[in-house]
């Protein structure tokens, strides 16, 4: 505490001192002060967005009709709350999760969990085998819509790729509220392991 306050005091003193010595203008001093005050909030903000929760727009039709219900009528996108704390734990069938795409590491995609590890899944067309057992530590994800590039395309994905769970829809207002994933009708062709 004392150490922290000493550091803070020294940083502020140095900032004001350099600003004063360089230009001696009140503007520069004030500017540096404001810079320290506001920029120092960036790291906590980034930490919060990476590990606790994030608000994000959903792109594309892969979760139609659940998300982006009007994707073929308007350019409106749904606004969702992504909860990121312990997101890789307690995954359940029916949850909507965000994860880094296995085919493009810079893209984060939203899909619904269809099968957990050990489940036997009857796959859909692009997949070469008709049945597959989801391997250890992996999940089988599918989009709700037809236009979805999901596990039927790239196979089961590692649960380590999961970055968050969609817990709330914020916009549009008509749909706003908790995502009731436990009430989701599961598709046929899943033999549960447990």
């Amino acid at each position: 505490m004392a150490f922290a306050s000493r550091l803070w005091g020294r940083a502020r003193a140095r900032a004001t001192a350099t600003a004063a010595s360089q230009s001696k203008s009140a503007f520069a001093r004030q500017f540096t002060n404001y810079l320290i005050r506001y920029v120092s909030w960036l790291p906590p903000l980034i930490w919060f967005n990476t590990y606790v929760a994030q608000v994000t727009f959903i792109n594309g039709p892969s979760m139609y009709p659940f998300l982006n219900s009007t994707y073929n009528e308007s350019t409106k996108r749904d606004l969702c709350l992504v909860y990121k704390l312990y997101a890789q734990q307690n995954l359940e069938r029916g949850m909507c999760v965000t994860f880094r795409s296995p085919t493009d590491p810079d893209k984060i995609v939203v899909k619904r969990i269809v099968g957990l590890e050990g489940d036997i899944v009857r796959t859909k067309p692009p997949y070469p085998n008709e049945y597959i057992r989801v391997p250890e530590g992996h999940i089988w994800v599918e989009g709700d819509g037809d236009k979805s590039r999901d596990s039927n395309y790239y196979g089961p994905i590692s649960a380590r790729l999961v970055t968050g769970q969609i817990t709330h829809i914020l916009l549009p207002f008509s749909k706003a509220g908790r995502v009731r994933w436990w009430e989701h009708q599961h598709r046929t062709g899943i033999q549960r392991a447990a």
Binding site: A4, W8, P43, I46, W47
Partner: peptide, 11 residues
């Protein structure tokens, strides 16, 4: 201040 510092270190 401690929280901000820890967040910066984490970054």
């Amino acid at each position: 201040f401690t929280a901000k510092f820890l967040a910066f270190a984490h970054l």
